[in-house]
C-alpha cells in the first residue's frame, strides 16, 4: 500500500459517501444516472468475485464490502424507493449502457493476462469501469442545474482513478516486474474521459459559478 493508492481508495470512498448522503438525506437522485450506477454494480460484482476465496487483507475485504453494498443499495434506492425514484430523470438517462457491456466482455475474452474465469472477469470489470461513467457524463450535459453534491460525486469518482495512476507509476518504480498494461491503459482511458468534466468543474469552482457542461 502506498500513499497514492490510499488517497485513491479514500477518494473513491468519499464519492460513494457523497452519493449515499445525497440520496439518503434529501431523498433525491436528481442528475444521477441509474445506468452508471448499474454499470458500477456490475463492475464490483465481477471484480470482487473472489472476495471470500482470496483474502488479501482486512482493509481490502472491508472496502470491497462497502463498494459492493453501496453500489447495489444505490441502484435499489433509485429503482425502488418511492421518494428517490420520483427524482430520477429517466427521460434523459437514455445511454444504451447494455451496448457497452458486451463489447467489454468480448474484449476481456480476447485481451487478458491469463485465460482463467477469475482473471477474465477481473479484466472485464476493468474495461467496464473505464466506460461506466459515460451515461453519467451524457446525463450531466442534459441536466440544466447540476447540484453541488452531484458535481462533487463525479469529481471524486474521476479523481480516484487519477490517484490510482500515480499509484501505478509509484509501484512501477518501486516493485520489480510490476507491469500491468491492461490495468494502466484502462485506467488512463477512464481518467481521460473525465478531462472535459474536470475542466468545467474547475472553471465553475474558480469563477464561483454553477457547474454546466455544454451539450
Amino acid at each position: 500500500m502506498n500513499i497514492f493508492r490510499l488517497a485513491g481508495d479514500m477518494t473513491h470512498l468519499a464519492s460513494v459517501l457523497v452519493l449515499l448522503l445525497k440520496i439518503h438525506t434529501i431523498k433525491s437522485c436528481a442528475g444521477i444516472s441509474l445506468k452508471t450506477q448499474e454499470l458500477y454494480a456490475l463492475v464490483f460484482a465481477s471484480r470482487y468475485l473472489d472476495i471470500f476465496t482470496h483474502y488479501v487483507s482486512f482493509y481490502n475485504t472491508v472496502m470491497k464490502l462497502i463498494f459492493l453494498g453501496s453500489a447495489f443499495s444505490i441502484v435499489w434506492y433509485i429503482r425502488r424507493h418511492k421518494l428517490v425514484r420520483r427524482s430520477y430523470d429517466k427521460d434523459h438517462d437514455t445511454f444504451r449502457h447494455y451496448f457497452i457491456v458486451l463489447p467489454c466482455l468480448i474484449l476481456a475474452l480476447l485481451i487478458h493476462e491469463k485465460f482463467t474465469f477469475r482473471v477474465v472477469m477481473w479484466t472485464f470489470s476493468l474495461y467496464l469501469e473505464a466506460v461506466a461513467i459515460l451515461p453519467q457524463l451524457v446525463l450531466l450535459q442534459r441536466t440544466r442545474n447540476i447540484d453541488n453534491l452531484t458535481g462533487q460525486y463525479v469529481f471524486l469518482l474521476g479523481a480516484y482513478r487519477a490517484l490510482y495512476i500515480l499509484n501505478w507509476v509509484y509501484r512501477y518504480f518501486t516493485e520489480p516486474h510490476y507491469v500491468h498494461w491492461i490495468t494502466w491503459i484502462s485506467g488512463l482511458i477512464q481518467t481521460l474521459l473525465y478531462a472535459d468534466f474536470f475542466y468545467y468543474y474547475f472553471q465553475s469552482w474558480k469563477n464561483n459559478v454553477k457547474l454546466e457542461l455544454p451539450a
Binding site: H54, V56, E113, E175
Partner: peptide, 10 residues
Amino acid sequence: SEDEELHDEL
C-alpha cells in the same frame, strides 16, 4: 504470485 500482485488493489 503475479495473480496476487494484480488483485491486491481494489
